[in-house]
């Protein structure tokens, strides 16, 4: 790489960072830089530290991040509309938000409906999440992240409940709407197809970090070997 090529500023940066929950250390000394404009797939077996890393990334750049956590964390008794709208609460005044809870305005309906349409949820817009299938609920969670309208997507297994084709289409579409992304996932083919860079984690250490164009499925398989 030539020295004169200017790189975008680092978006996330860790140097010898210790990450964990309370006393439990997940990453002992993490060195990692992710720049603006990169799309990164985080791979690794369960318990390798993907969720911990995502939470730490979010803490570094909270105002820039749209967040789609694994435990979906939707409000099940509210409609798809309100769960998606919730992503944008910070963008509107409190009074407007409370109004939307009781009786949304046509413009609020339209802006949320546009997001729902892209996710194939138009039919279910005013149905509560506890009456949806797992896949529909997962798409609602993605909708909430989209409606946040922030440039950096941080997502934890956002399409694990969807079939291969739908997952690929929705993930591609979602990535297009963000300029940077870090997404934890298990689907290795999807990681190679949709992301520029792949980071593989094992026991709290990045054991693999390379452009996806240089990797094969077989390279990724080694991450999951005991």
């Amino acid at each position: 790489m030539s020295a004169c090529q200017s790189k975008p500023a680092p978006l996330f940066h860790f140097q010898g960072a210790r990450l964990g929950h309370g006393r439990e250390t997940v990453f002992a000394a993490l060195d990692l830089t992710i720049r603006r404009g990169e799309t990164v797939a985080l791979l690794g077996p369960s318990g390798s530290g993907k969720s911990t890393l995502l939470a730490a990334l979010r803490r570094q750049q909270e105002p820039l991040c749209a967040w789609c956590p694994q435990e979906q964390a939707l409000v099940p008794m509210l409609s798809v509309f309100h769960n998606i709208y919730m992503g944008g609460l910070h963008r509107f005044g409190t009074w407007r938000n409370l109004r939307a809870l009781v009786r949304p305005t046509p413009s609020q309906c339209d802006s949320v409906a546009r997001v729902a349409e892209a996710l194939g949820l138009s039919e279910k817009l005013y149905t509560s999440v506890d009456r949806l299938s797992g896949g529909q609920a997962q798409r609602t969670a993605l909708g909430r992240a989209l409606f946040t309208e922030r440039p950096v997507l941080l997502a934890d297994e956002p399409v694990s409940n969807l079939d291969e084709h739908q997952g690929m289409a929705l993930l591609g579409d979602t990535l297009e709407r963000h300029d940077s992304a870090v997404v934890a996932m298990h689907d290795r083919a999807l990681a190679l197809a949709c992301f520029q860079r792949v980071i593989g984690l094992r026991h709290g250490e990045p054991v693999l970090d390379a452009p996806s164009s240089t990797l094969t499925l077989a390279d990724l398989d080694t991450l999951y070997r005991p």
Binding site: M77, P104, D110, Y126, R131
Partner: peptide, 15 residues
């Protein structure tokens, strides 16, 4: 866009 806000939610029953 057609606007139908007939909420079919669990919360609506409680409300």
């Amino acid at each position: 866009m057609k606007r139908t806000t007939a909420f079919n939610t669990t919360a609506a029953g409680w409300r």
